[in-house]
Amino acid sequence: MSDRTVTHASFVIERDYAAPPSRVFAAFADPAQKRRWFAEGEGWSIERFDVDFRIGGSEHSSFRYQGGPPISNDTTYQNIVPDRRIVSAYTMTIAGEPISASLATVELIPVGSGTRLVYTEQAAFLDGKDEVSTREAGSRELLESLAQELERTAVAG
């Protein structure tokens, strides 16, 4: 058996959206919207996406990228303040092997008619199977997908 290691790291991403906090919050709270920007995408196949968006509720997803090994994300919502804050704890696995455990905080701050989203993640990366630079890059991609979802729903609304 190889040595077991833990690397602790954190990062913060700030992103402005041309949508009010209520619309940004809805993109997290509404399962259909969240699935579109968080789980779907070119090259991804979704095997499971279940959301119970409430304090103490959970979100479970399982997906593959271009036919690769299964990746799972299991989240528990710790704190939710509508239109202002979401705090969740989540773990990720690849092919059933744990790669990380994280605490993630989303803050929604009104800025004019839009929103400044501040995303903070504090993570324990396990056994060298993931790292902070990869996770931060993936989080930035997700926040870009959120921007596209907000633009799409603004046109549809």
Rank of each mutant, 00 (worst) to 15 (best):
T105D: 09
Q122R: 11
R54P: 00
E131L: 00
V6P: 02
H8Y: 13
T93I: 02
D52M: 00
A101W: 15
R15P: 01
F38V: 03
E151L: 10
Q148R: 12
R23T: 02
F38A: 10
A137V: 03
S139C: 08
F11L: 14
S62L: 15
P20A: 15
F11M: 14
N73I: 13
R4F: 05
Q148W: 15
T105L: 06
T153W: 10
I109V: 11
G57R: 08
S62A: 15
D127N: 14
S45F: 11
T120R: 15
G67I: 08
E42S: 04
E131R: 01
V111L: 13
G112T: 04
R85S: 12
P21V: 04
Y119T: 01
T76M: 13
Y17S: 05
M1H: 06
V111E: 14
V6Q: 07
T93R: 15
S22N: 02
P70I: 10
W37S: 01
D130C: 06
A32C: 02
E131D: 07
S139D: 02
P21L: 04
G138A: 14
P110W: 09
R85D: 08
L103W: 12
E121A: 06
A39P: 06
E59H: 06
E144D: 05
A19Y: 12
V87I: 14
S72G: 03
R64C: 07
G57L: 03
N79F: 14
E121H: 04
P98F: 05
T105I: 11
A9P: 03
S2W: 08
F25H: 12
Y65H: 10
V51A: 00
A101D: 05
V132Y: 03
I55L: 00
A9F: 09
S113Q: 13
E131G: 02
G96W: 15
V6F: 08
Y90L: 05
H8W: 11
E42P: 07
E131W: 01
N79V: 11
Q78L: 14
D74K: 06
V24D: 07
G57T: 07
D30R: 11
E131T: 00
V51H: 00
V6G: 00
R15E: 03
E14Q: 13
R4P: 00
L143S: 02
T76E: 14
V6H: 08
